[in-house]
Design a binder for these strands. Structure first.
Lengths: 204, 204
DNA sequence: AGAAAATGTGAGCGATAGCTCGCATACTAG
DNA sequence: CTAGTATGCGAGCTATCGCTCACATTTTCT
């Protein structure tokens, strides 16, 4: 490890060929990260797995950190898209429907690539690698906003705390279900139970 | 990195002097881990920080992994002690009191050394480094056992799922409170809300 | 006291890390 | 076709890694 890892961007690909290279590198980053974990992943291994020379890799990614940051970006953009799309539909919808929808989306988000999600979770939260917490933060504010709209019909006074509780809970449940108990998603029991839990808490 | 990291134990210290050395090494492991994170932590840095030669370090710890495993052991033993002690007192106690007590203990556990806790969270879950999940697993079964005893007065049918929900929730709340919103612990609002949430869910 | 056991030391080995740079090849524009 | 630009290559640099081993020092035992 020479002096300091760089995190600034490099050249960006303008031709189709190089854009494919970049995609191949990010794909390979995902494979190697899932296989070896962050600290046993190396830029050389990623280049090899991508079928690309180490020099090419460094044309587009200035550091190991940048590789994983790009991968995170892609993964979380996919997840974020799910939510922002749903957020549209939620305005004015009754509480139970909204809660159920958010839970469903969160589970879907975790099902996109559970192994990758788990691997990303264990990446050190330094420098560019903080998107993980960003996404959860975004989830919290989304829930908070929804609650604010219908605050008259809700029991809890501090809706910021309530939103935190609910968002955290949904995240945890989805995470645990997809990674540890996928069978609990066959029937809807777990989801029903979670909806129940949240509604009992929110309703007057 | 030579062939394979070893994880078996080495010599154990019999004299007082060497026991102090071992403690100094584990202390230093905590400091370096908190400062640099797992992947930038190195055995040489730890030896330096402990004021001990690298040779001495390897007399007692066969690998970097073993260092962190020992640190985890110590940290989680402290946490586990908190809970096992409390578990005694909980038999026969009314639900609200029990829930409140568990939450209080969990928060205390997170307050022991929040930064260390956070650093340990981001350590790769491989080989010996799985105690983190072990502790949470233990928490889940503890809650499950408590619920089983008073199952007649509880609403949820599947108490395993209920225990999972509750244990996960308490973990998340405590974690978030200590690390992101320490001020929410001044007054008891957050704790009250969480107790409320759980009781509404459990009660018939 | 002195011998044996326990403990401590740190130079340095081989492996691997992240990363650069000079050069070859492929594409684009005139 | 040709000149210029974009892309791709990989040997190899330096720093650091995890770790060993021959040796020095301290403690324990008789």
């Amino acid at each position: 490890m020479p002096p300091r890892p760089r995190t600034t961007a490099r050249k960006r690909p303008s031709q189709k060929r190089s854009q494919e290279t970049v995609v191949a590198i990010v794909d390979a980053t995902a494979r190697v990260l899932k296989r070896d974990g962050y600290d046993h992943m190396s830029t050389n291994k990623v280049a090899l797995a991508a079928g690309v020379s180490i020099g090419s890799l460094y044309q587009y990614f200035p550091s190991k950190e940048a590789l994983v940051a790009a991968l995170m970006e892609r993964h979380f953009d996919e997840i974020r898209a799910l939510f922002e799309e749903e957020a549209q539909r939620l305005a004015g919808v009754p509480l139970e429907v909204a809660v159920r929808a958010i839970i469903k989306r969160t589970i879907e988000a975790h099902q996109i690539d559970p192994i990758l999600h788990q691997a990303l979770e264990q990446v050190p939260r330094i420098g560019l690698l903080q998107k993980f917490d960003d996404v959860q933060e975004r989830g919290r504010t989304l829930v908070h906003q929804y609650l604010l709209v219908s605050h008259e019909s809700l029991r809890p006074k501090d809706l910021e705390i309530a939103a935190d509780l609910i968002a955290s809970l949904i995240e945890m449940v989805s995470h645990g279900a997809v990674l540890r108990h996928p069978n609990r998603l066959k029937d809807g029991v777990l989801v029903d139970e979670t909806v129940d839990l949240i509604l009992r808490y929110l309703k007057k």
